[in-house]
Design a protein around this nucleic acid. Structure first.
Length: 315
DNA sequence: CAAAGCTGCGGAACTGGTAT
DNA sequence: ATACCAGTTCCGCAGCTTTG
């Protein structure tokens, strides 16, 4: 859906939309080179100067239809956050969405700010904890968003937050084990789903959530591995004590992955049902868990589509 | 002569390699 | 692993050139 384009490139295209030419090196972007340049012929190099790109007729119409909203959305964000709108920023869309998520939760985060390394591993978990180290500008921008001058050098281990992506007229709450859904919340909003993230493994935070914050049916989506499901049993117990029920999102056509793939480390235990509390699960859920244990596989959260599942259930 | 176009340069941001 | 450094990319601007 989203085109893979950095802010610098998007701004270059916008420069072209407003003016006539740009010196931004746009052709290194796959989408610009293949779609805009080769297929649609909306761009060309200026005669005798490959450093300059000019537009052909139709470019403005295309930009207005497909890219202008995006540009304005991010430009408005930079403005609200007090960051200059500059093509110096080479941020990918993933980073832009992460910054927006940080911006939305800046009040919470400011009070519980942790070290750069911890911060990095929470928000850029598919990079790594050192991601921010070599990116001084990104670090500065995050600090600007949070309205603080520096990250603390050390912080207590339990520094965890409840991040929320609000939506108008919420009807459901979806608690996510991982942060990724919160970075791409558009479809969730459209479907009246409010997103919560409790910081990895930090079920304790749930104790402190006032009962009246949970006004809507609450769902939980997680990796279907030992770790994710074990957290679910704890969450279910905590909410149960508060008199609330929670529904586990069961993937409909799960994509099974080998336990040892990539950076995945959660392995099944040898005990019955891997030592998970059997009573916490419905028969259908147990069936899938046993299938996974027997084949030594897991299901990644990002391959699950919670929207269709949540919205079907209301019928 | 004014406006638009072009070029070169300084420096910001980042990357990848090397030493410790 | 971590820290440092040298190299690369390329924006943004200033000042120069072209054009109508």
């Amino acid at each position: 859906m989203r085109k893979e384009i950095t802010w610098r490139q998007l701004k270059g295209l916008h420069q072209l939309y407003e003016g006539k030419s740009t010196r931004v090196k746009l052709m290194s972007n796959v989408f610009v080179k293949n779609v805009l340049y080769k297929q649609r012929h909306l761009l060309k190099y200026k005669d005798g100067n490959i450093d300059i790109i000019v537009k052909n007729t139709g470019f403005n119409a295309y930009f207005e239809e497909h890219l202008l909203d995006q540009f304005e959305y991010y430009a408005e964000f930079f403005q609200n956050a007090g960051i200059e709108i500059s093509a110096r920023r080479t941020y990918s869309q993933e980073i832009l969405e992460t910054l927006i998520l940080i911006h939305k939760n800046r009040e919470t985060l400011r009070q519980k700010l942790s070290t750069p390394r911890i911060f990095s591993s929470i928000f850029f978990e598919n990079k790594d904890s050192k991601f921010l180290d070599g990116k001084p500008q990104l670090k500065k921008d995050i600090l600007t968003i949070l309205g603080v001058t520096k990250f603390p050098r050390e912080s207590a281990k339990d520094q965890q937050y409840r991040l929320v992506v609000d939506c108008l007229d919420p009807k459901y709450i979806l608690l996510c084990e991982n942060i990724d859904f919160l970075k791409d919340p558009f479809e969730f909003r459209k479907n009246h789903i409010e997103l919560w993230y409790l910081g990895g493994n930090n079920t304790k935070k749930l104790y402190e959530v006032p009962i009246d914050k949970i006004k809507f049916p609450i769902y939980y989506v997680c990796d279907w591995d030992f770790h994710g499901l074990e957290i679910y049993t704890r969450i279910k117990e905590i909410l149960g004590n508060k008199g609330k029920a929670i529904t586990l999102i069961v993937p409909t056509n799960p994509l099974l992955k080998p336990i040892k793939s990539g950076k995945h480390f959660s392995e099944w235990k040898v005990e019955s049902l891997s030592g998970l509390e059997r009573n916490a699960f419905l028969p259908g859920e147990i069936q899938l868990i046993e299938t996974l244990i027997n084949s030594n596989k897991w299901v990644e959260e990002q391959t699950i589509d919670p929207i269709s599942i949540i919205c079907e259930k209301k019928v």
